[in-house]
Amino acid sequence: MTVKVAKQAKQAADRQVTGEQAAGRPASRGGRRHGSYPYALYAPAAAVYLVIFLVPTVMAFYFSLTRWTLFDSTFVGLDNFRDFLSEQNLRIGFQNTIVYAVVTSGLKVVLGMGLGVLLTGSLRSRGFLRSVVFFPVLVSTVAVGITFSMLLKPDTGLVDRTLGLAGIDGRDWLGDATTALLSVALVDVWKGVGLATVIYIAGIVSIPRSYYEAVMVDGGSAWHRFRHVTLPLSWPATYSVIVLSFIGGLRTFDLIWTMTRGGPGFTSDTIASIIYKQYQAGFYGLSTAGNVLLFIVVTALVVPLTYVLGKRQVVL
Rank of each mutant, 00 (worst) to 15 (best):
H34V: 13
W257D: 08
G77P: 07
A196E: 00
W223Q: 10
D269G: 05
G203A: 03
L174D: 04
F84L: 10
S240W: 00
S268D: 06
L293I: 10
S210D: 14
L115Q: 02
F75Y: 14
F283D: 14
V314Y: 00
F75H: 10
T120F: 01
A45V: 07
G157L: 06
G263P: 10
A46V: 15
A281K: 12
I274S: 02
P236K: 03
R15F: 08
G24E: 05
R33Y: 09
V48T: 15
T299Y: 02
L294P: 04
L301R: 04
V51G: 13
W257H: 09
G116A: 07
V48K: 14
M259C: 15
M59G: 13
Q8W: 12
R161W: 03
D155A: 13
F81N: 06
V298Y: 00
L250F: 01
F128Q: 09
A13H: 11
V48Y: 15
G194I: 00
L233E: 04
V132D: 09
R171D: 12
F84S: 03
I256G: 01
R225I: 02
R91Q: 10
L152Q: 04
V159T: 04
A13K: 11
S273M: 08
I204E: 01
L195S: 00
D14E: 14
A143D: 12
Q21H: 08
K311Q: 12
P154I: 08
P38W: 15
D188H: 04
I296G: 08
V308A: 00
G77T: 11
I275C: 03
D72Q: 12
R25A: 06
R82W: 11
T120R: 06
P44K: 13
V99N: 08
R225V: 01
L293T: 07
A202R: 02
T267P: 07
Y284W: 13
S206L: 05
H228D: 08
P208I: 04
L286C: 10
L138K: 11
A46M: 15
G127N: 07
G106L: 02
V187A: 10
K191W: 03
D72V: 05
Y307P: 06
T178Y: 15
F94Y: 10
G194C: 06
T197G: 01
D176F: 08
P38M: 15
G106Q: 03
V17N: 10
V298S: 00
V302Q: 00
R251W: 04
W235S: 00
K311H: 12
K191E: 03
F84Q: 02
T179M: 13
A180Y: 02
Y307Q: 14
S240M: 05
R161A: 07
M1G: 12
L118A: 09
L138Q: 13
T74G: 09
V139K: 06
R161M: 06
S240N: 07
T252G: 05
T156R: 09
T252M: 11
D169G: 13
